[in-house]
Amino acid sequence: MHKRVLFRARWLPYVLVAPQIVITLLFFIWPAIRAVEQSFLRQDPFGLRTSFVWLENYARLFADAAYYHSLGVTAVFSLSVTLLSMALALLFAVMADRAVRGATIYRTLYVAPYAIAPIVAGVLWLFLFQPTVGILAYALNQSGIAWNFRLDGGQAMLLVVIAAAWKQIAYNFLFFLAGLQAIPKSLIEAAAIDGAGPARRFWTIIFPLLTPTTFFLMVVNIVYAFFDTFAVIDAVTSGGPGAPGATNILVYKVYNDGFVGLDLGGSSAQSVVLMVIVIALTVVQFRYIEKKVHY
């Protein structure tokens, strides 16, 4: 039965949802519209003259090798962050689910990083791996690895992936743990009686039953890697090192070109393309993958 709430005054429900609608319009819809509008314009650095240039910003974008480079960087970065954070979160969730003693402590500790602001997480990892003062960087250099993510693009990518994934593990962990606890214990027992060892039970029973959770987390993690990792990149590498930027993901490039390079039109065009990519990814995920994850 669908439960309906009845309000005495007709206007009351509208007033109650109004704040949410105002916030959405003001901070999401309006900027998105302004970005689309801006992407057709070109402005001089002082904002004195603005001219309408049709699709010129887009044309320049798609002719720019640096933009394709950034697309590639984003793909590598998002996939790595998503895979790493989900794989580790699943591993930790399985272990925490088995823990008999101190399960609450494990859970609390695992969830803690989620409460840390992205910029703080970035700075934390920066301190650890800073080539001149970082304690882990020192250890790496001592053991014969020439660690300097300020120079080595691969190392820079590795570091931002780890930092971004580390923060997201907490979130994924919570959902995986809840998913694991929703699996009836008798299913695992039935599989044990059927002769399946722990590894086999995991891959043939537990993992397939977690697919709805996994799918949901995949969508959330990709969106996270595309957008919410801005602060981590900004704090750790600022998109560098190198000229096209070894860690210059799309969202960072939007910021860098728009607010540092002051190319507002080109930056807006990039953000519109980014928006379209994420919308397309989400639609594809829900239309084609979700159908296969229900049992």
Partner: peptide, 26 residues
Amino acid sequence: IAMVFQNYALYPHMSVYANMSYGLRI
């Protein structure tokens, strides 16, 4: 031994055939 559970404990993502043959395949 084989056990029949109160809530049946059937593997929800497998067909009836796969449910019944799971132990034999192992």
